[in-house]
Amino acid sequence: MKIEGAVAVLALITGGLWKENHYLETNKVVYRDSKIPPDFKGYRILQVSDLHSQRFGKRQVNLIKRTKELEPDVIFLTGDMIDRNHTNIERSMDYLEEAVKIAPVICVLGNHEFEAKKGDIFIQEMRRIGIRVLKDEKIYLEKKESRIPVIGIDDPYVLPKCKGEDYDRISSYDFVQRLKKVMKHKEEGFTILLSHRPEFFHIYIRTGMSLIFSGHAHGGQFRIKKDIGLLAPHQGFFPKYVSGIYQEGETSMVVSRGLGNSLFPFRIRNRPELVLVELS
């Protein structure tokens, strides 16, 4: 039996298989921080991550419906909205064209946007419909007389691949240098960082960021327990950062399990999710 077939049988026995997922789980986090401006009390941030051109009903009707129900004030996209192996720009845009009608959409790119052959076209399409794509940039969320800085940094794979070299090592070094440069413009007070990669949490802590939104780990793909995953990109087996909220000192990181899959088409005990963070 092929490995995919064996996993499918195992998942059906355990009741934990999701492929071409239509079931959406929503996880809500109430995030408290004394540095949050009072005007932002109750502000709702919807994180959408790692769609990988997955389908949630015809023309993404299920995903759009759930997004409307959550009534976000802003939507953060944290990368890999398309997939390099089975790129379907139309399927991703079906959702995004409706999302921008619900709330402002702010995006950082993942490795798949840079690896897909049509990645540049997809980025152009996002900008065309009004999505703000942050490439090592800072913008502000505004409410009444207050504002919160949001910094977005490009994925390490923005660096063109260099044949015959240790690409991950080189691109990671470049990523850290770019992050340091962006952080020179960091302001005091509550600041949000959008970055596709959770494995750099130890670096984010040093920057003094308040709250990070990240994805990429796919919830560990196969979850052994609630917060224990088997495998994640760039973290390997039994990854440290798979889902939920992680905190060290005054820095917290929200990691979404995401919506779609990439190389392996199944999830086990790992439903696709939307994350709603309410500031308090």
Rank of each mutant, 00 (worst) to 15 (best):
178 R>I: 01
90 E>A: 10
145 E>K: 15
165 E>D: 10
102 I>R: 06
158 V>A: 13
182 V>T: 08
148 I>N: 00
109 L>A: 03
148 I>S: 00
146 S>Y: 07
170 I>F: 09
117 K>Q: 12
88 N>K: 13
132 R>M: 09
170 I>M: 12
123 I>P: 00
182 V>R: 06
158 V>T: 11
151 I>V: 12
131 I>N: 00
167 Y>N: 15
146 S>N: 15
173 Y>F: 12
120 D>A: 14
106 I>F: 04
173 Y>V: 11
106 I>H: 01
126 M>D: 00
151 I>N: 08
168 D>T: 11
95 Y>S: 07
90 E>S: 13
143 K>A: 05
96 L>A: 00
105 V>I: 05
145 E>W: 11
128 R>K: 08
115 E>R: 15
93 M>F: 04
92 S>G: 09
164 G>H: 03
161 K>S: 11
136 D>F: 04
111 N>W: 04
137 E>R: 00
119 G>P: 02
166 D>H: 14
101 K>H: 13
150 V>L: 10
102 I>P: 03
175 F>V: 06
162 C>L: 15
112 H>V: 05
112 H>F: 06
137 E>T: 03
164 G>V: 05
133 V>M: 00
109 L>H: 00
121 I>P: 03
138 K>Y: 09
97 E>I: 09
136 D>C: 08
172 S>K: 12
126 M>E: 01
99 A>K: 04
104 P>K: 04
110 G>H: 03
159 L>Q: 09
141 L>W: 03
91 R>H: 10
145 E>L: 10
107 C>P: 02
151 I>R: 13
98 E>Y: 08
157 Y>A: 08
185 H>Y: 15
136 D>Y: 06
108 V>R: 00
155 D>Q: 01
90 E>Y: 08
182 V>K: 07
181 K>M: 11
185 H>C: 12
138 K>H: 11
98 E>D: 13
100 V>E: 01
157 Y>W: 14
181 K>Y: 10
132 R>E: 07
119 G>V: 02
156 P>H: 10
172 S>M: 12
176 V>F: 14
104 P>Q: 03
168 D>N: 14
129 I>E: 02
163 K>S: 09
94 D>W: 11
151 I>G: 09
169 R>L: 14
178 R>T: 04
158 V>Q: 11
104 P>R: 07
184 K>P: 01
103 A>G: 05
142 E>H: 13
161 K>P: 10
116 A>G: 06
158 V>F: 15
90 E>I: 09
111 N>S: 07
176 V>K: 15
184 K>C: 05
155 D>G: 03
161 K>I: 15
122 F>H: 04
109 L>C: 05
96 L>I: 00
160 P>Q: 11
118 K>M: 14
155 D>M: 00
98 E>A: 07
174 D>A: 09
162 C>T: 14
127 R>Y: 06
135 K>Q: 15
130 G>I: 01
124 Q>M: 13
101 K>D: 11
113 E>C: 05
150 V>W: 11
184 K>I: 01
96 L>P: 00
107 C>G: 01
98 E>H: 10
125 E>L: 14
144 K>W: 09
129 I>C: 07
170 I>R: 14
163 K>P: 06
130 G>R: 02
101 K>V: 08
147 R>P: 11
115 E>I: 14
172 S>V: 09
183 M>K: 11
115 E>N: 12
121 I>N: 08
125 E>N: 11
179 L>R: 01
183 M>E: 10
179 L>Q: 05
90 E>L: 12
133 V>G: 04
176 V>G: 08
126 M>G: 01
128 R>S: 06
120 D>W: 09
93 M>Y: 02
